[in-house]
Amino acid sequence: MANLHWLANPGRFLRIAKAVSPVLAGLTVVLLAVGLALSLQAPVDAVQGTPSKVLFMHVPSAWMSMFIWGVMAVASAVALIWKHPVADIAAKVSAPLGAGFTAATLLTGSLWGKPTWGTFWVWDARLTAELILLFLYIGYIAIWQAIEDPQRAGKAAAILALVGSVNLPIIHFSVDWWNTLHQPASILRDGGASIDASMLIPLLLLAAGFQAFYFTLLLWRMEAEIAGRKIRQLRLLSAQA
């Protein structure tokens, strides 16, 4: 069967995934536990008070929301150019995770915003850009659901992911242009980090924990997706026989 050849490759992937994912899961637990503990012990921001602790969740979520679209774009390019089925699956199962981190960013952002700005939502540049990113994720997920045949849906979604990644910088720039109200970037500023090490270390630990969390979920979801496609194939074969 010509259309089954891809199973050979995902088979190899599955063996690797099964070995790696428990390690990643353990790493996630350790990083998140240590990061959370340190973040709770970190000194309270003199100006913003206790609510600033939300930023320990908000900032890594925001990083992840953009990082995951990047992963999807790379995976989509690989899937389109080399017709690599595992890349196709990686892009597909990443989208709901990315949408989740984006939603978490918006949620923590508005939780932080209420005591800080006095309102749950302000049209500040970064929150607005995150909201648009959430729309892009939703569009990507919707196109997977709208097209029945997974191979066609995969290619259509891949085109959208690449178009989106070309557009994201333009959108970010335009939204910044539109509104430059938010705090200036303070982590990756020229001349090194400007925040105190007691806050930076838990932040980076949590960011690493979020990364490990994402990759753990990614591997689990990819295993599930491959199993699901295998079942589809077998059903189809039994219908044809």
Binding site: G139, I143, G164, I171, F173
Partner: peptide, 15 residues
């Protein structure tokens, strides 16, 4: 679906 896909991409032109 078309509107959903296109709307976020329209934002820079709108702004």
């Amino acid at each position: 679906l078309l509107s959903l896909l296109v709307m976020p991409l329209y934002i820079p032109a709108l702004i």
